[in-house]
Design a protein around this nucleic acid. Structure first.
Lengths: 230, 230
DNA sequence: CTCCACTGTCACAAAATAGTAACAATGTCT
DNA sequence: AGACATTGTTACTATTTTGTGACAGTGGAG
């Protein structure tokens, strides 16, 4: 169900794994290559929606490969984000010159990375699809900011919407109240855990009014789970 | 439920955020500090289950702080994983000398990090392994917090779930009531041993309702055993 | 066979946890 | 400013979970 595929070209295992994980958590799919040759082969199979490209690569350098890509009509529209080590500032400029859409300096904050990926995808017009999360007959559209059950619209408050958004992107997994607060409200604010209960209750009420009883499930002693199957 | 709290002491924002995220995805809670002083304060509030400690810190160095901790009876048992930049090889040795339990070189693979954390936690106490434990047609999923027999869900209480979790990770072996109390309830609480019997009974009842009679076996004079073969 | 430690089962009370409604504070829109 | 929606908090209630004592059943040692 990850609707975007991102090609990671990075020779260092640790960083590549880290990237896969960060992407995965935001529901991006990924394919991996350790050098330009390998990456090139993967392109035959599937054209990714974005490329995360390490500047320093064994063999053909990242920038060199990017330059070639940008010349080929089939690939030239794939946005590229360059990954550079700290202190390679001048590379950024050259990188952007040859057509990279953004760059990130290692080590990077996961939030920032995701934000930049989203920004680049949006800029290149790819992101309309991603704004929709579909789960059974539930549809949550972040762009239109709408939540519908079989095309009937639900009236939810902002917080309920965010809660629903989190649930729908992380179904079938139990989250403690603390985790929900972190994820939906943000790490910085302090809010009573019991407040979650109240919001859950409000959400349930709305869902029930539309005939869905069992979507938000209580796991006593742990927290809550959102799942289509009871 | 053994949800763990990990104290991260790391001054670089990007790396700290990354750590928080990686931990979160594996259901570890985290508290954060940017230097030793701040970390020390956090200890007053809550003693974490493990500390991820950057070697290089502004003010008191990581190792220096670790050394002090290891001298204090209250804190000396908290396992510490040192984070070092590449090329600080000699630090590792010193770090392990002063009592760190493991070290990781930045940048690190999330899988490896989680694996090491698990390993250290396992070494220094108790922790359960993967999120899914499969035994015959039994499936226990800690992530979803679900227990199923051939896809039919069992309704178990938190304690029953933990008991089941322990049994399924330690099948075919007899455990005394004391051992079960230690493992499932925790070393600290004092509870009558006969209480186990009652919980066993409750568990058996639920299992029987789903047609499994012989899973939890009594070993007279010793304790209980969980096994698929009668 | 008889005794007795050991175990299974039940009922009850205490404790923990979650659901709910009401309220107050805050922000937003007209 | 006034009306309204939103949100967090609290107090109260309902429900579930848990520990314990009591008692009966069981099986093995002698």
């Amino acid at each position: 169900m990850p609707s975007f595929t991102i090609l990671i070209v990075e020779d260092e295992d640790a960083i590549r794994e880290m990237l896969v994980m960060v992407l995965d958590q935001s529901n991006f799919g990924s394919i991996e290559a350790t050098d330009a040759e390998e990456a090139q082969k993967l392109l035959d199979d599937k054209v990714p929606d974005l490329i995360l490209l390490d500047w320093m690569l064994p063999g053909i350098s990242g920038v060199e490969w990017a330059r070639r890509l940008k010349k080929e009509p089939v690939y030239k529209d794939i946005p590229i984000i360059l990954l550079t080590a700290r202190g390679e500032e001048e590379d950024k400029i050259r990188g952007l010159e040859i057509g990279a859409d953004d760059y990130m300096t290692k080590p990077f904050s996961p939030k920032e990375l995701i934000a930049r990926i989203r920004a680049v995808l949006r800029r290149s017009g790819k992101i309309q699809g991603q704004s929709q999360i579909i789960l059974g007959d539930l549809l949550l559209d972040t762009e239109q900011h709408r939540l519908t059950i079989s095309d009937k619209q639900l009236e939810v408050s902002p917080t309920e919407f965010r809660l629903m958004q989190f649930f729908m992107t992380h179904p079938d997994k139990v989250y403690t109240r603390t985790q929900l607060l972190d994820q939906v409200w943000g790490r910085s604010v302090y809010i009573e855990e019991r407040t979650i209960d109240v919001h859950i209750r409000r959400l349930r009420k709305i869902l029930e009014e539309h005939g869905r009883e069992d979507l938000v499930q209580t796991v006593r002693g742990f927290g809550y789970r959102f799942s289509l199957q009871g």
